[in-house]
Nucleic acid binder design. Structure first.
Length: 317
DNA sequence: CATATTTCCTGCCTGC
DNA sequence: TGCAGGCAGGAAATAT
């Protein structure tokens, strides 16, 4: 459920508290929250290289994560699409993906445990004192990892919150998001129109455009009056440009309202919900009248989830 | 190569 | 009241 606006709310909330802070302690409560963490190959005592990675069974994933993170100095949090990272050094970062229910919560040392708390960092900030940064995740689709930083393909700054042209290796294949000043509009339009899949599938593909999930895909398609199952390669260049504009507008509006919260799963770093759910026109509104024409919004199965659209405003061609 | 399907996971909600 | 089943969803892995 966290898509670009929700992850950006989290990034902005973390920035003042973590930038310049030191990690005083790390506690991994549930190793499943480290799904993406690849432990460094241990010192084999033979003076080995130390750069090779392994995910072989037997490597103490939790211990590796805790050991490498403890004592680290945290840089400014950065984001591309739904991927969030906090640099630890010029070549390493703490990478976070919230999945559907991940939360990054800033708490005082003596605050009660949040439900589904999986990983805890005790941090010390020179100006703000001691805090806990708790990663909570009900459905465990999210994860934390330590990952190497690699150069961006285009040489521009990697994403929101950073001026550096490096990003975690695990996020290197992700396209820029539409709020990124270095986003390639023409490349997106051409790429979209080259695909034989449904237009909704295309905008959910994070290698074409990042940050879009089911909610904002439905909202942008509603705004652009495009049927979710229309073939991407049948969308005109003009319409594709319009769709991009609508994605930017809906992201900006949702961001201004603190993101979309349907249940207790999406919250900011203080555990508070956003307000954009009240502004949705299509998503989650099956059977309700289209705000534009009054026709009942239709809900249809789509790739194991649902699409919501107006059958009158959004024709298949 | 491009596209489609499966997998991971918990908790809420519905229907019997 | 209990319990099975459906649903929610991002992205990597696997299959076609």
């Amino acid at each position: 459920m966290p898509e670009l606006p929700e992850v950006e709310v989290v990034r902005a909330g973390l920035a003042p508290a973590v930038t310049g802070a030191t990690v005083a302690g790390v506690e991994v409560v549930d190793a499943r929250a480290l799904k993406r963490h690849v432990p460094l190959a241990g010192d084999d005592g033979l003076g080995g290289h130390g750069v090779s990675l392994t995910a072989e069974a037997g490597v103490p994933r939790i211990a590796d994560f805790e050991r490498r993170l403890t004592g680290a100095l945290l840089g400014a949090p950065a984001r591309r699409g739904k991927f969030l990272w906090i640099p630890l050094s010029p070549d390493e970062a703490l990478l976070a993906h919230l999945g559907m229910s991940g939360q990054m919560l800033l708490r005082s040392h003596d605050a009660a445990d949040d439900r589904h708390m999986r990983v805890r960092l005790w941090i010390e900030h020179p100006d703000h004192g001691e805090l806990r940064l708790d990663f909570a995740d009900q459905r465990l689709f999210g994860s934390l990892a330590l990952d190497g930083l690699v150069p961006t393909a285009d040489g521009f700054a990697a994403g929101r919150g950073t001026d550096l042209a490096v990003l975690p290796g695990q996020a290197a294949h992700i396209a820029r998001d539409p709020l990124d000043p270095a986003f390639d509009d023409a490349g997106f339009i051409a790429g979209l129109r080259r695909r034989g899949v449904a237009v909704k599938s295309a905008i959910l593909d994070q290698t074409l455009i990042s940050g879009v999930g089911n909610i904002y895909a439905d909202e942008a398609l509603w705004r652009a009056r495009l049927h979710p199952e229309a073939k991407a390669n049948a969308v005109s260049a003009r319409k594709a440009a319009e769709l991009l504009t609508h994605l930017r507008e809906v992201f900006a509006k949702a961001l201004a309202e603190g993101g979309t919260s349907f249940d207790a799963q999406y919250v900011n770093t203080n555990g508070q919900a956003g307000y954009f759910a009240h502004s949705l026109n299509a998503y989650g509104r099956g059977g309700a009248p289209c705000p534009r024409c009054g026709t009942a919004i239709r809900r249809i199965p789509f790739a194991g989830r649902s699409s919501h659209f107006c059958p009158r405003c959004q024709r298949r061609r």
